[in-house]
Design a protein around this nucleic acid. Structure first.
Lengths: 271, 271
DNA sequence: AAAATAGTGTCTTTCAGACAGTATTAA
DNA sequence: TTAATACTGTCTGAAAGACACTATTTT
């Protein structure tokens, strides 16, 4: 805007009514999911100021739009920057995808804010002890959160209420993650290479929230072309409570799982 | 902003650096799809001013953000408003869903614009002869457009190049539509009630761009619970080139198709 | 009569899921 | 020795897809 002002702006607005133009604040928020201790966790930061002071919120912030304050920043870059700041380390290689955009008037009590939400998946990361910012950031188990559609077992009384509409955003991200496990190799983004079939199964069980049949899962994963690729190696020891050494795999080259691994027993949720 | 100024704004920005805030222009663009003459069509408007003067673009425009220029407007409402203006009639009941947000710096040559794209599906609508705005609007067959991933048969030389990144947005919308035909009853949004199984099959064949086996399709649709619901009626005549009268159906109550109708022969596109 | 279309029957192959069973390892 | 786990074998039922076939309607 500054410099190239009303003239070229009016040109741009030619097919609209220029008087309809209001600037809005554009932010990115990131739903970063990981698995710790067999539970799905999301990265949250604690707010220090009102509104929602003391409550937890998604990491996020303003997109550098490219006004007089510096170069313009692409939306995914802004998401990675915000996430990296709060996670305490640079996460350039993380799996990131756009989740959706939330712009209902009043979702922020003070001004019109349009938030582009991103969804990130990572293998277990260290607790963000010393973030760039002063405020607390922490990986938080999803069962502790008050989400729109209950994730399953929640301890009442200990649930944390989230700022803004972030509970809805997390619920949407969770449903996206559950769905993408079915037809993409997304589960491999939650483990470090090399991994075992059991580790992969633990990802599915944790995200879907239900146990899977170990034998059938094993055969199924190996039967999907390009899902995983053998390393020829095995673990050095058996499991902590017994069992043989497991073969190790790395990610395959498939971008879609065919046939898909469908969630069991969803006939009810169809109407 | 106006009224509640720097103080509360600084409060809001507590967990960010307030100096990072740049306002951006937020617009909505709508990919409205319909089927006319057995071809998928998208609603386009012709630009009158540079940049991209004379080229075709998606209907869209600024979101009323709720500054000093009037009440704030929700994003889907803005999409319906823009679409209705260009289509020449109010489309309050149309199937509408968010497609994605496009904000790469430079996608508009003059200023930073963040566009929230919506995807709409409609049964055949009249040609928008007299829109609210002066500029031309028209239902345009998709094969006439230069899209990122070629839709199939295009007549070279007659293709229309689209303004901004709208070719990419349409390509993304098309892929979304193709995919959603598989596991949702979306196809019924393209036909008017009551409809025949053949009309439904024509939707799938048009959107997927390949012929389906009539007999197997018929049985499959009727076997999916809640996809369609019989009216007990039949058409008054047979088809234009012969054949018996067809039974008529309306939309069922399913929101997901189980089992899904998968696109044939996609093993190749998996890597 | 011929051609097109609606709708059904049947067969084969694939796949999901239940279940059983063997081999290997830790406690 | 016991329990846990990795992995494989086998059976059943569901479903996709190929193909054939009948019935109905228009030209």
């Amino acid at each position: 805007m500054a410099g190239t002002d009303s003239d070229s702006e009016a040109e741009f607005l030619a097919r609209y009514d220029p008087r309809e133009f209001d600037p809005a604040a554009v932010t990115v928020d990131v739903v970063a999911l990981t698995i710790r201790d067999d539970a799905l966790h999301v990265l949250l930061v604690q707010r220090g100021e009102p509104p929602y002071a003391g409550q937890w919120a998604l990491p996020g912030g303003f997109v550098r739009a490219g006004g007089h304050r510096g170069p313009a920043e692409d939306l995914p870059d802004a998401a990675i920057r915000k996430l990296s700041e709060e996670a305490g380390q640079h996460l350039g290689q993380i799996h990131l995808e756009q989740l959706g955009t939330y712009g209902t008037p009043g979702r922020d009590p003070r001004m019109r804010v349009i938030t582009v939400a991103y969804l990130a998946f990572a293998p277990e990361l260290p607790e963000p002890l010393a973030g760039i910012n002063a405020q607390a950031a922490a990986w938080t188990p999803l069962p502790l959160l008050k989400l729109a559609h209950a994730t399953g077992a929640q301890q009442p009384g200990t649930t944390r209420k989230l700022a803004f509409d972030h509970a809805q955003i997390i619920a949407d991200g969770l449903e996206r993650a559950r769905s993408k496990l079915e037809y993409t190799p997304l589960a491999t983004a939650f483990v470090t290479e090399p991994f075992t079939i059991s580790e992969l199964r633990a990802v599915y069980e944790t995200v879907w929230g239900e146990p899977l049949h170990a034998g059938n899962f094993h055969r199924k994963v190996l039967s999907v072309p390009g899902f995983v690729e053998s390393t020829g190696q095995t673990t050095q020891t058996g499991g902590p409570r017994g069992g043989p050494r497991a073969r190790l795999y790395r990610r395959g080259d498939a971008r879609l799982l065919h046939p898909a691994l469908l969630r069991p027993g969803r006939e009810d949720e169809v109407r």
